[in-house]
């Protein structure tokens, strides 16, 4: 499969006078047409920052300091600001976490959709209206015509997220970056939004990067999974393989931290310690201080190594046995 979007060795830092925090340290990932890539990690691992870096929307003092973001073979990091603007929303769209906050509270849905349309196309009011109605209809909003007149506060959370998705899909983008789009929603609504986005992306062949900390959500929607820890991708592979047989100790720790049925009364697993501060990372493997498998070798930084035909992992001591057992 050819990648629509290929992020290579992305570095981003927060630069303030006297202190530079390297928040992304060589993130590489790729996503193919119609593929859904789950990007997981705990808070502060850099997953959201990765999403915003791809779109060049990190707010200062954050800054992309190195690497490439190849969209159809073109590095978006080298584009002029105006070319970048023309790309946003048209080729790379975003959906945000909190639907209460993503829509402008004082503008009608119609205005917001029309602005998004007119950002990239010269179209009249009537045409914009027609397109907006069609887009709202597509994301399952009942009576889209009257909804256009509404203000965001008149819609429920799920409806707002549907509107945001409709806006993201307006220009049939190649890639959608969805930053925890279901986290703020009720569980039942979550399910609806998940299957909606999944269906729409499949139909159009849109590549989707789904950023989340919720493994249950990615398990249900993603094709592949990338796990981030302290500004680096530590494991990538097909979602089922990764969840069944994690190779990186951190991935396993994440999976085991999810409370499961049938374990009532037992003590929940947790990863000891906490993620190191980005300002003060250990030289070697950044997970080593919390890792039960760590050895002297872990004082050096492991590279991303192939692990089987479809996976790769950044670890000197990948959890072989279980993985091999799972591969059989």
């Amino acid at each position: 499969m050819t990648a629509v979007l290929n992020v290579k060795d992305l570095y981003a830092s927060f630069i303030t006078p006297g202190l530079t925090v390297a928040a992304l340290q060589g993130v590489s990932l790729s996503v193919a047409k119609g593929e859904i890539l789950g990007l997981v990690g705990e808070s502060g691992s850099g997953k959201t920052l990765t999403g915003f870096s791809i779109n060049r929307l990190i707010s200062p003092p954050g800054e992309v300091v190195g690497g490439q973001v190849m969209l159809h073979g073109e590095d978006v990091l080298t584009l002029s600001e105006e070319k970048m603007r023309k790309l946003r929303g048209r080729r790379i769209a975003m959906i945000f976490q909190d639907p209460m906050m993503t829509l402008n509270p004082v503008l009608r849905i119609e205005t917001q959709m029309r602005d998004a349309l007119r950002a990239h196309e010269k179209i009249g009011k009537a045409e914009a209206r027609k397109r907006s109605i069609a887009a709202l209809d597509e994301v399952g909003i009942p009576a889209p015509e009257s909804r256009l007149r509404s203000y965001p506060h008149e819609l429920s959370g799920g409806m707002r997220q549907r509107v945001a998705i409709a806006i993201a899909l307006l220009h049939k983008p190649d890639v959608i970056i969805a930053d925890e789009p279901t986290t703020a929603l009720d569980v039942t609504i979550q399910g609806q939004i998940l299957s909606l986005v999944q269906g729409l992306c499949r139909d159009r062949g849109t590549a989707l990067i789904w950023i989340t900390h919720d493994l249950a959500v990615v398990a249900g929607i993603a094709d592949r999974l990338a796990v981030m820890y302290a500004g680096r991708v530590v494991e990538v592979g097909p979602v089922d393989d990764l969840l069944d047989a994690p190779a990186h100790p951190y991935t396993r720790g994440l999976i085991e931290s999810v409370p499961a049925r049938g374990q009532r009364g037992k003590r929940l697993n947790q990863i000891p310690g906490r993620m190191p501060s980005l300002a003060d990372l250990p030289d070697g493997c950044s997970f080593a201080p919390r890792c039960e498998h760590a050895t002297a070798a872990c004082a050096a930084l492991p590279d991303m190594e192939a692990f089987g035909p479809t996976r790769s992992v950044r670890c000197f001591h990948p959890l072989m046995e279980r993985a091999l057992w799972a591969m059989r």
Partner: peptide, 19 residues
Amino acid sequence: DYIKFARANGIRERRILST
């Protein structure tokens, strides 16, 4: 967030500011 979202949709900076 809604301003970030507007930017992510490629809306021109002048339009974002003025409206």
